[in-house]
Amino acid sequence: MNNRMKPQVIAIAGVSGGGKTTIAKYLHRKLKNSRILFFDDYDFDGVDDIIDWVNKGADYESWDLSPLIKDVDKLRHEPLNYIVLDYPFAYKNAKMSDVIDFTMFIDTPLDVAMARRMLRDFKSSSTATIMSEMENYISQGRMGYMEMLKSVKPNSDVVVDGMLSVSEITDKIMEAIKVG
């Protein structure tokens, strides 16, 4: 019989531009014997238009997260200590919540998250493209961010200030999951 403990699955949640990927990568480097999975590496079925999804009530069960769940399940059978997920929804999807042990929500001010996203995604874009994206954010995109704050943030184990340094946020996560 195998008495080996399964790895602890840690999900890093937050809004787009909130620091999930940066924190997940840094945490992965600090945790011994860990693997990392990124939500954005998957093409999920079920939701094509985020704003339409929010307008219809933001049903987190409408996301078919089975490819990510399958990969987490595979990793849970490997001799690992931790699986770090760059995953925005915390416990909001029932099937996904079954495989997560701990969630940390990075609470980044929306103006900072938007500025980070613009710097990350629109470096080579024209002024017209950037202006169009900003108009879209004001007219409808912000609703997606607000949905995260309303639903995902309170469904996380710990909320951490997204304005702290990467090392401070990571230290708080390690403290919360009791890594010495």
Score class of each variant (00 low, 15 high):
I36C: 14
P67E: 06
E135Y: 13
K92D: 04
K20Q: 06
D111R: 04
Y145L: 11
A113R: 06
D171P: 00
L85M: 07
T21E: 10
D111E: 05
Q8T: 09
N55V: 01
S167V: 09
V160W: 01
A13E: 03
K178A: 14
L80S: 05
T22W: 09
M5R: 15
V152I: 15
G144E: 06
D111N: 14
D161E: 13
G17F: 10
S34I: 05
G180R: 14
A13C: 15
N93D: 08
L85I: 01
S156H: 07
M118D: 00
V158L: 15
M96V: 11
V15P: 01
M148C: 09
R120W: 06
M174W: 05
A13M: 06
P109V: 01
M104H: 02
P79V: 04
R116V: 00
E78M: 13
L149I: 13
P67T: 03
A176L: 08
G14V: 01
N136S: 11
K32M: 07
K20F: 06
S62G: 02
V54A: 15
T108D: 09
R116L: 01
D64W: 05
T103N: 12
F44K: 09
F105S: 01
S66H: 10
S156Q: 04
I173G: 06
W53Q: 10
F105V: 02
S126D: 08
A128E: 15
A94D: 07
N2H: 10
L119S: 09
S132I: 00
D43E: 15
D86H: 07
G144S: 13
V112H: 01
M114I: 05
I83L: 10
D157Y: 11
V152C: 12
G19Y: 03
G19A: 07
M131L: 15
V166M: 13
T170W: 11
M1P: 05
Y91Q: 04
K178S: 13
V72T: 02
S66G: 03
S34K: 11
P154M: 12
G162H: 03
R120C: 03
L110I: 09
I138G: 07
P88F: 07
Q140F: 14
H77K: 14
I169S: 02
S34R: 13
D98V: 07
R120M: 05
S124P: 00
P67H: 12
I83R: 06
V112W: 09
T127K: 15
P154H: 12
A115W: 05
L68C: 04
D73K: 15
T129D: 13
A24L: 10
R117L: 10
